[in-house]
Design a protein around this nucleic acid. Structure first.
Lengths: 165, 165
DNA sequence: CTGGTTCACTTCAAGCGTCAAGTATTTTAC
DNA sequence: GTAAAATACTTGACGCTTGAAGTGAACCAG
């Protein structure tokens, strides 16, 4: 708090990059949500939760692990899990190994819902993100976002090396 | 609904890129909001609105233009403008040229608030986004996000060529 | 084995954003 | 000149996310 950490303002390239980044941050999630909501009555985050479970053994994962994988808070996941449970797509189970934990288990109906939803979702992701980009840009984007994600939270999501979406 | 628009699933590079992108979409806005909230009692979107006005002649802009520039809906901007007006950072004025429009005018207090808030905000943006990236990556990111933004909404924000943040 | 701490999860209230409906003004078309 | 359509904005209800507080379970020191 003593020394003046001299502030560097954004140069022209940075300014332009920041502007387009904000623009994507503010519009892309809405577009992805809109498609899922229209075609599957589901949020992107809800889809990520179900989809995350399909990659887990037995379709089962501890809620806290699921929160990490989906980049959500425990509170957020807890409420979404309740909603998904009410719809019959997952069930909660006590963790036999640790009484503090709760396991989320994907039901057959939940797996079916993912199978039925993913084509439209992937199509949208491809249209909005990958179709406009070259293969080189896809690789660039991965590294760029990996670095930003690490800066935001060094202990961030396991998703980096774990399964896909 | 007749022909099978053969769906292409994501390959490994795309899957990884998508995972990191989601991760940034889900965590970066919260991190930016958190800093502004803590240091200025303000949302990122509210900051964008005030900041956008500082670049307009006379600190004045039509609400609908301001909504475009900030990537927000008219409804969202309307409510945020009310909030900012209550805090004394902007005022609404009738547009003399078009009775349907309303002008948002930045007050001196509003301009002072931006001046006082921007250093901390820029510092955070630099730390989370530009410090971890090379100059080449900054240029790559700009083009990548520009393409994604265009895919999301071809008639999107004027911000692309207009002023900065 | 006991008191304190950490961890996993849930719940509640408050704040935000979206969507749809409503008002007012201007433009367009006949 | 008038009716219909388009435009600009506001409002209110609803759903979602967050953050703080609370419960219960496991771990750890002595």
């Amino acid at each position: 708090m003593d020394g003046a950490d001299e502030l560097r303002w954004l140069d022209e390239d940075e300014q332009a990059a920041w502007t387009t980044l904000v623009s994507v941050l503010l519009t892309l999630p809405g577009a992805l949500d809109a498609q899922l909501q229209a075609d599957a009555g589901m949020t992107l985050y809800e889809y990520l939760v179900l989809s995350g479970l399909t990659y887990a053994p037995e379709g089962t994962m501890r809620l806290s692990d699921l929160a990490l994988v989906t980049n959500g808070s425990q509170s957020r996941l807890s409420q979404v899990a309740t909603k998904l449970e009410r719809r019959g797509w997952l069930v909660r189970q006590r963790d036999p190994d640790d009484g503090r934990s709760t396991l989320a288990v994907l039901t057959p109906a939940g797996r079916a819902k993912v199978d039925q939803t993913s084509p439209g979702h992937v199509e949208t992701v491809r249209r909005l993100i990958f179709d406009p980009l070259t293969a080189a840009q896809v690789r660039q984007m991965r590294e760029i976002n990996r670095r930003i994600r690490t800066a935001v939270d060094p202990n961030g999501s396991v998703m980096f090396r774990a399964h896909g979406v």
